[in-house]
């Protein structure tokens, strides 16, 4: 799958994590692109040096977990400038963040937290996405969240919120199919309605991963192969919104590289079938 390092190829990629850096750089497996967590490469030294080497061989997507687009505190300027510096250095094919918050007055919670989908929150997140895009001088992709709770104050669905956010800010959507599946099971979200709400043009990337269950609650643990139900939902989403670059995420109990590549090959097959 030859592709320029500067265009986002519509093929499968993998989340590249520390245990695989060495093997990937030594064996250079055939792989459309890789995605890494932005914050692990802030500053200099070995992490940045390694990512630059990876970048010589693969398109790289930067996936942030710390910007807190919905946080109730001012946008963290240092965090944003660290990300901006990393973008200038790596020239990623995509930059994404989550539709979530991680800070409130006096608190920082290093997690991806849901919030009530209100008009007020939509104004707030729109302003912040705009601010990030202006600083990075590029489009930001915003990812739908897997949640374990919902808020009775919500005035719209997450799908409505994302659709309007893209329209108002010009951001793209990173559609995490597993997150949608988790929300269907946990919160009774209507998958069909969600898919219909999402503007196909705005979708620039898909995520797939495995989850686990705790006392009846599905937790987005990325510690398992993609479940069949999620593959089915993925195929269904592709039929409606079209194929896009698709990432296999695996963050806990990370398997040997061939198993991860095998998961990516499965996604690749579905993308190709969809093209036919």
């Amino acid at each position: 799958m030859p592709a320029s390092k500067y265009t986002f190829p519509c093929v499968a990629g993998i989340g590249l994590r520390a245990p695989h850096y060495r093997e990937v750089l030594e064996t250079l497996p055939e792989l459309g692109w890789v995605e890494v967590h932005s914050e692990n490469f802030f500053g200099g030294g070995a992490p940045l040096h390694t990512l630059r080497k990876v970048r010589e061989h693969y398109p790289v997507s930067l996936h942030g977990v710390g910007m807190g687009l919905a946080s109730a505190t001012p946008l963290d300027e240092k965090h944003l400038s660290d990300l901006s510096q990393l973008c200038n250095d790596i020239q990623p094919v995509a930059v994404s963040e989550h539709l979530c918050w991680n800070a409130a007055t006096g608190f920082v919670i290093n997690d991806l937290l849901p919030f009530p989908y209100t008009r007020e929150a939509l104004d707030h997140v729109t302003r912040r996405v705009t601010q990030v895009q202006e600083k990075l001088k590029r489009q930001l992709l915003v990812e739908n969240l897997s949640s374990y709770i919902s808020f009775s104050q919500s005035e719209m669905t997450e799908g409505d919120f994302l659709a309007e956010l893209t329209q108002r800010s010009g951001c793209g959507i990173l559609f995490d199919v597993e997150n949608l599946y988790v929300n269907v099971r946990n919160l009774g979200v209507d998958a069909e309605a969600f898919i219909k709400t999402i503007p196909a043009d705005a979708v620039k990337e898909y995520h797939l991963a495995g989850f686990s269950e705790r006392d009846g609650c599905l937790v987005d643990t990325h510690n398992h192969p993609v479940y069949n139900e999620v593959w089915d939902l993925y195929e269904h989403v592709l039929k409606h919104l079209g194929p896009r670059p698709t990432l296999i995420e695996w963050d806990t109990d990370i398997p040997a590289l061939p198993e991860l590549l095998n998961e990516a090959a499965k996604a690749q097959l579905i993308i190709e079938q969809c093209h036919d």
Partner: peptide, 19 residues
């Protein structure tokens, strides 16, 4: 109380404990 999980598979406490 505004934090709800509107589905019946688990309790609110379970969800909060996950976070």
């Amino acid at each position: 109380t505004q934090i709800t999980n509107c589905y019946a598979n688990y309790s609110q406490n379970t969800a909060i404990e996950v976070y």
